[in-house]
Amino acid sequence: MGISIGMITVDTADALKLARWWAEALGGEIAEENEGWFVTVALGAGRPMIAFQKVADPTPGKNRIHLDLRADDRTAEVERLIAAGATLVAERSMGDGFAWTTLADPDGNQFCVASD
């Protein structure tokens, strides 16, 4: 394939604060701070980076794109993320037994955590 995801960027009023939260949540590290206006988080070789861009007016309402995270132990990871500042939005499931948890980061951006 000739195209792949290189970086996922999130608009925020405080790029450095949110980048630090996601770096901790995903086990990444701050790669570039750029004086707090565009902060990148490296997640490891072969994985896309996640970036946080300071904007004066972040998009209001529910985010149109969200991260779907996979965890070996969904319950433990959800508990860890909530303790770190995430907010529980909902527990969800599909008829075939597949379940996931929707959370929001400290800026209110929703994301999901599921297990195999």
Rank of each mutant, 00 (worst) to 15 (best):
I5S: 08
I8P: 01
V89R: 06
M49Y: 05
A13P: 12
T9L: 02
E32I: 12
V113M: 14
E79P: 07
G97V: 12
L81G: 06
R80A: 06
L18T: 08
E29S: 13
L69K: 10
R80C: 05
D11K: 02
L43F: 08
G44T: 04
T102F: 09
Q53K: 10
D73W: 03
F111V: 14
A51M: 08
T87C: 06
N109A: 13
A25P: 09
A23Q: 08
R64Y: 01
G46V: 08
R64P: 01
I5R: 14
W22V: 00
L88K: 05
W21A: 05
E79V: 01
L67H: 07
V78P: 11
A15G: 07
L103G: 02
M1N: 14
R80L: 11
A51E: 14
N109C: 13
A71L: 12
G85R: 03
G44V: 07
L81T: 00
A71T: 03
I30H: 10
R80H: 06
I50H: 08
R92D: 06
A76F: 05
I50L: 14
T59K: 10
I3H: 07
E79Q: 15
G108D: 00
V55S: 00
T59H: 04
A86P: 05
L43H: 11
G36L: 08
G28S: 00
A56T: 11
